[in-house]
Amino acid sequence: MADNTLWVGVLTAGTAVVASWVTSRGTARAARIQAEAAAESQHVDRLRAARRSAYVGVIEQAQRMGDMYWKVTDVAGDPDAADRRGALTDLRLRLRDEYAVLRHRVWVVDLEGPAEVAEAANRLRRSTSDNYRALNAMIGDEAGAEERFNACYAPFWQAVLAFVAIAREALRGTAAVSPRGR
């Protein structure tokens, strides 16, 4: 009987050691999985924040340019040709500076991605070209230049709205898609 007790004790101890080993491996694996999930979640959060910041920068800059387009329209009504030309020339310089900021922000969006948002940002950037050409024509007193300039606002604004819609969808999809593939 003593021999059976010894074997039962050894078997119980062995079972306890194996159970402990299995439990510790499971706990270690669970901890590793949890750490990986937390790291991935933090990465997605950082990516989403960086993208959101880049997208907001483009939208804010487009709004500034849109405001300046309205100023051009206001100045175009000045009856004094010399004052009008001087103010339009000043606005053209300011718009050129604002365009440089927009171009920089579009590049940031291109870096942050995804490609659809970068393409929309680039279309928005390109939509400012007709406005600039029409403004130059206004400064040169070309016939119909003011109407051309005013006609350029709607396509510009449509490009802004398209960018906002695509950026919104990209941000909503950031949490659902792994950022590793961009």
Rank of each mutant, 00 (worst) to 15 (best):
A2H: 02
W7R: 04
V8P: 00
V10T: 10
L11R: 01
T12P: 02
A13K: 01
A13P: 04
T15I: 12
T15E: 04
A16H: 01
V17Y: 00
A19H: 00
T23R: 00
S24M: 03
R25N: 11
R29S: 13
R29D: 14
R32N: 13
I33L: 15
I33V: 14
Q34A: 15
A35L: 09
E36W: 08
A37Y: 09
A39K: 05
E40Q: 05
E40F: 03
H43Q: 06
V44E: 02
D45M: 08
R46Q: 10
R46Y: 09
R46G: 05
L47C: 07
A50K: 03
A50S: 11
R52W: 11
R52F: 14
S53D: 14
A54L: 08
I59V: 11
Q61W: 05
A62T: 05
Q63E: 10
Q63M: 04
R64T: 11
D67V: 00
D67P: 00
D67G: 01
Y69C: 02
Y69S: 02
K71D: 08
V72K: 00
T73R: 00
V75E: 09
A76P: 10
D80W: 03
R84Y: 13
R84A: 09
R85I: 11
G86F: 00
A87C: 00
L88C: 06
T89P: 02
L91M: 08
L91Q: 07
L91A: 07
R94F: 03
R96W: 12
Y99H: 15
Y99N: 13
V101C: 04
R103N: 13
R103C: 07
R103L: 11
H104M: 07
R105A: 03
V108P: 00
D110M: 00
G113M: 02
G113Q: 04
G113F: 03
A115M: 04
E116Q: 05
V117E: 03
A118L: 02
R123S: 10
T128I: 06
S129A: 13
D130A: 13
D130I: 08
Y132G: 04
R133Q: 14
L135A: 09
L135G: 08
N136P: 05
M138L: 13
M138N: 11
M138E: 12
M138Q: 13
I139L: 11
G140W: 11
E142W: 08
A143T: 13
A145T: 12
R148T: 15
F149I: 10
C152S: 15
P155M: 09
F156P: 03
W157T: 07
W157S: 06
Q158A: 14
Q158D: 15
V160T: 05
V160P: 01
L161A: 13
L161G: 06
F163D: 08
F163E: 10
V164A: 05
A165V: 10
I166W: 02
A167Y: 06
A167F: 07
R168A: 12
E169H: 06
A170Y: 09
R172D: 15
G173V: 05
G173Q: 13
V177N: 09
